[in-house]
Every structure is written in C-alpha cells, then in structure tokens.
C-alpha cells in the first residue's frame, strides 16, 4: 500500500522530492516554492501561512494530487 503520510510539518522539499505530482498544486496557488532554495527549510504549514492559504485546504489538495496520480490500491 502506498504511503500517503505527510504532515503539515513535512518540508516542502521533502514532499516535492517524494511526490513530484504535487507541483501543479503549488503552481495553482501561485506559490514560488518549487525550486526555491529555501524549500528544504519551510514546512507545508509555513508555506500555506506565507501565502495566506487555508492550511487544511492546501493539505487536502496535495493529498488529492498524490491519490489521483497513484495507481489504485
């Protein structure tokens, strides 16, 4: 079974490295995180706060992006 576990404390860089399919979510929210040299130091919660995005909504979209692109289990 695929491990979908990531938390608001996961760093942006870890998430993007592990699941590149989340990149469009960052772009849709007009976030400059992808490729940013600081993404290893910022958590998903930090990023949502910086861009004034509802953290719950953000986490939900990221999760959806991963589920949709993963093979059915």
């Amino acid at each position: 079974m695929t491990d979908y576990s990531f938390t608001p404390e996961t760093s942006v860089n870890d998430l993007v490295q592990k699941w590149p399919q989340v990149i469009p979510v960052f772009i849709q929210f007009h976030m400059a995180c992808v490729g940013c040299s600081m993404s290893a130091f910022e958590t998903l919660e930090d990023a949502a706060n910086i861009y004034a995005i509802d953290p719950q909504l953000f986490m939900q979209r990221l999760e959806e992006a991963i589920r949709e692109s993963s093979p059915a289990v």
Binding site: A32, C36, S37, M38, F41, E42, D46, I50
Partner: peptide, 8 residues
C-alpha cells in the same frame, strides 16, 4: 534567516 520567504 528568520523569514526566508521575505529574503526570497
């Protein structure tokens, strides 16, 4: 760096 996004 206290606010990395600001510096970026």
């Amino acid at each position: 760096i206290c606010f990395p996004h600001g510096l970026v």
